[in-house]
Structures are given as structure tokens and as C-alpha cells.
């Protein structure tokens, strides 16, 4: 993790929104990639969903967890849902 902080837009859906309590926020973070960001947020807000279940999208595209984040990226965390 480098020390350079960047501004990121983060969106939460379904169970993650419930855990975080809001659906969207702008944050300052020094996380280099999506995985580090999730770990950081999970620790800060008690997000208990495992990374194997949650999928991440950056700028409206599904990406692998090791995707490097750039300033002003929009990161969306998506758990699967099954209700019908």
C-alpha cells in the first residue's frame, strides 16, 4: 500500500448496504487495489461477507480483485441475491 491517498466513489448493494448502512459514499483511501479497499472497509465497518462471495466492479465493469484503483474510480461491491 503506498501512502498516496485518492478520492474514490464506493457503492454497496444488498447485504453489504445493510451492513454499511448507506448505499454510496465518497472516500479518501490509500488502498492500491480493490481487494485492499474491501479489506479496509470490511475492517472499518464490520462487513462480514467473504471476498469469495462478493464481486467487485470498477467503473461499471466486473473486474478481478487485484485490479489497481485510480483516483475518482467508482467501485461497486455486489453480493449475489437469490430471492424470487
Amino acid at each position: 500500500m503506498n501512502n498516496k491517498r485518492k478520492r474514490l466513489q464506493v457503492c454497496y448493494y444488498a447485504a453489504l448496504r445493510e451492513m454499511r448502512g448507506i448505499s454510496e459514499e465518497t472516500i479518501e483511501s490509500s488502498s492500491d487495489n480493490a481487494e485492499q479497499l474491501y479489506d479496509e472497509l470490511a475492517a472499518a465497518y464490520g462487513l462480514t461477507l467473504n471476498k469469495e462471495i462478493v464481486k467487485v466492479a470498477v467503473n461499471d465493469k466486473f473486474v478481478p480483485w487485484n485490479t489497481v484503483l485510480k483516483p475518482n474510480d467508482t467501485i461497486v461491491f455486489i453480493p449475489p441475491v437469490a430471492g424470487g
Binding site: 467473504n50 462471495i53 464481486k55 449475489p80
Partner: peptide, 17 residues
């Protein structure tokens, strides 16, 4: 997207949530 079947309880069905 989701390689394996998620455990039902972990994210909740209509009955649960």
C-alpha cells in the same frame, strides 16, 4: 461471475431477509 453456488444462508432469501 460466481464460480460456486453461494451458501443460501449467507446472503439471505425472501424467507430469511
Amino acid at each position: 461471475i460466481w464460480q460456486d453456488i453461494p451458501q443460501s444462508g449467507c446472503v439471505g432469501s425472501c424467507t430469511e431477509v
